[in-house]
Structure formats: structure tokens, C-alpha cells
């Protein structure tokens, strides 16, 4: 199966581990990702609130650049995914707006007809297109004994939840169970991580992050897996600051779901980007997954 691939800016730097593990896992599962040639930033969450038309045009450029042979584009980053999807919808639903966006694209010799490219999230592709049997088939080191808390965040399930319940999505839960992990069913898995709130008001942001960490810890999670660079940054990068602010002692590793998949598939942790996170994940994974510690020692 072949898809256009839109990595997005985060995956080039702070979320490099996501990009690495996505490519590794995709390769193993037979998902062929063809990176969009000359893609540009999706504008993240801010640009839309500044100028909708420009923001849309900037994103639509990426859709217009998708190889016409390919009908689907995969974006691992939640914000990129939502922006691409939202752009396609906005253009499809508002003919006038569509025309304006295409006027802008025409300046660069491009055109995009809404509906031509289907925007997919990586989780979606793995769960729906690849499916349970093929994923289970690739598991060589089942994650037995590891208590994993799936964290969905906001943007993948809202406002376009597909067949998921946006208040209580289950796809990642299912995927993790296929890997043999003990899935932690904790109540805040689709609550907000605060997004860019750390840049606006730290006390507010820290409280949002604390709630997630607290709940995962209350439910005895060994680690949290996420599917968004922003979520990972907030939960991992700010964990120390949160501890300082609230006088707590959280030490929860936060990794991407593709990273933990790679472990179950027996891939080299280094190639999956382990070690780039601040709260080290590998020691926890090795300590908890039955039989993995012994293997590592050899």
C-alpha cells in the first residue's frame, strides 16, 4: 500500500523519534510512504486564527503537491493531520472559498480540487488498512507486563472523529492490546494537554499537564504513548517543570505509539528514536516487559 507522506516540521526536529519510528514501522508493515516533494509548514494551530484564507492556501499547497497517482496522504502529527483535513473540508463545503484558495494556488501554478486527496492519520492507516491480523503477525516481542496508557489528545479525534467516539476513542487501545501490552483504561485519555498554553500561561498549562500525568499514574501506568508531537513535548519536556511547580515526583516516560510498536516488532530501539525523550523510556520498557531485560543483558 502506497501513501503520500507529510511529515510536518515537528517531525524534523523535536519529534524526530516519531518520524524515525513511523518510517521503520511502516517499512515493516509494507506501508510505502512517499514524502511530498517540497512540502511546506502547515501553519500549526496559530495561523488559522490569524488569516483563514492564507492559512488554508498554505496548507492546500501541500495537498496540491501530492502525486496525482496517490489518493491518500498520511500525516503523523495531529496538528498537521487536522489542518490538512480541515482545509480539504473547507474547500469542499464553500465554493467561493475554494475558488479564492485556488486563485492563490494558481499564482504558483498549482490547483487543488477538494476531495481528490484523502487525509489519513498514521494510527488510522495501521488499524484500518493494515489491520489486527497483520499487526499481530509482526509482533515478535509481545509487550506482556507493560502497562501502557494511550493518550489521544484533541486533534486527531476532534472535530473529525470518523468512527471513533471523540470523548472516549478506542483505536490506540485496540492497537496496544494487539501488541500484547496491558492497556490502561484511564479517564483522561482524550483530554487536552494544553497545546501552546505553556507559552501563554504556565500555571494553566502545568495544571492541564499534571492532570494527565496524575491520572495515568493513579492507574499504575508504566508509560504513556501518544500520537502528537505537541502532546509529547508537553508531557515529557515539561514534566520536570510540572514536578517543580506542584512539588510532585512524576517520572512517566512519554513515547510515540509507533516507537512502542517498533519494540514489539523487535526493531532496534536506536532506529526508533529511543533516547531522544527526556524521561528515559527504554529502562522502563526493559524492566517491565517480560523477558526483555534478560535479552538486553545478553
Amino acid at each position: 500500500m502506497k501513501y503520500a507522506y507529510y511529515p510536518g516540521c515537528s517531525l524534523e526536529c523535536n519529534a524526530a523519534a516519531y518520524d524515525m519510528s513511523v518510517r521503520e514501522v511502516a517499512d515493516l508493515l509494507g506501508i510505502r510512504l512517499q514524502e511530498i516533494d517540497d512540502w511546506n509548514c502547515c501553519g500549526a494551530t496559530e495561523y488559522f486564527s490569524q488569516d483563514e484564507l492564507t492559512a488554508t492556501a498554505v496548507i492546500a499547497r501541500n495537498l496540491a503537491l501530492v502525486d496525482p497517482q496517490l489518493k491518500q496522504v498520511v500525516a503523523p502529527c495531529a496538528a498537521c493531520y487536522l489542518n490538512l483535513k480541515k482545509t480539504d473540508r473547507l474547500m469542499a463545503e464553500h465554493a467561493d472559498f475554494n475558488q479564492k484558495v485556488n486563485e492563490a494556488l494558481a499564482a504558483g501554478g498549482l490547483h487543488y480540487r477538494p476531495g481528490t486527496v484523502q487525509v489519513r492519520h498514521m494510527l488510522d492507516v495501521i488499524c484500518d488498512d493494515i489491520g489486527e491480523a497483520a499487526v499481530r503477525d509482526k509482533v515478535v516481542k509481545p509487550l506482556n507486563g507493560l502497562r501502557v496508557a494511550p493518550y489521544y489528545g484533541c486533534q486527531v479525534v476532534r472535530p473529525y472523529p470518523g468512527d471513533e467516539n471523540p470523548e472516549y476513542p478506542m483505536k490506540m487501545d485496540h492497537l496496544l492490546s494487539w501488541l500484547g501490552a496491558e492497556v490502561v483504561d484511564y479517564p483522561v485519555k482524550a483530554h487536552c494537554c494544553g497545546g501552546h498554553m505553556t507559552q501563554i500561561s504556565e500555571p494553566q498549562a502545568f495544571e492541564l499537564i499534571r492532570r494527565l500525568l496524575q491520572s495515568a499514574q493513579d492507574y499504575d501506568a508504566d508509560l504513556i504513548v501518544c500520537m502528537c508531537p505537541m502532546c509529547q513535548l508537553n508531557l515529557d519536556g515539561y514534566q520536570g517543570r510540572v514536578n517543580g511547580y506542584f512539588n510532585t515526583e512524576f517520572k512517566l516516560p512519554i513515547v510515540y505509539f509507533t516507537q512502542i510498536m517498533g519494540i514489539a516488532f523487535g526493531l532496534d530501539p536506536k532506529k526508533l528514536g529511543f533516547g531522544k525523550e527526556l524521561v528515559a523510556a527504554l529502562p522502563v520498557v526493559r524492566a517491565k516487559v517480560n523477558g526483555l531485560a534478560a535479552q538486553a543483558a545478553q
Partner: peptide, 8 residues
């Protein structure tokens, strides 16, 4: 909005 056992 929700019923939760996640205490704050």
C-alpha cells in the same frame, strides 16, 4: 460533560 474518577 463527564463522570470521572480522576480527582484533581
Amino acid at each position: 460533560a463527564e463522570v470521572t474518577d480522576a480527582a484533581r
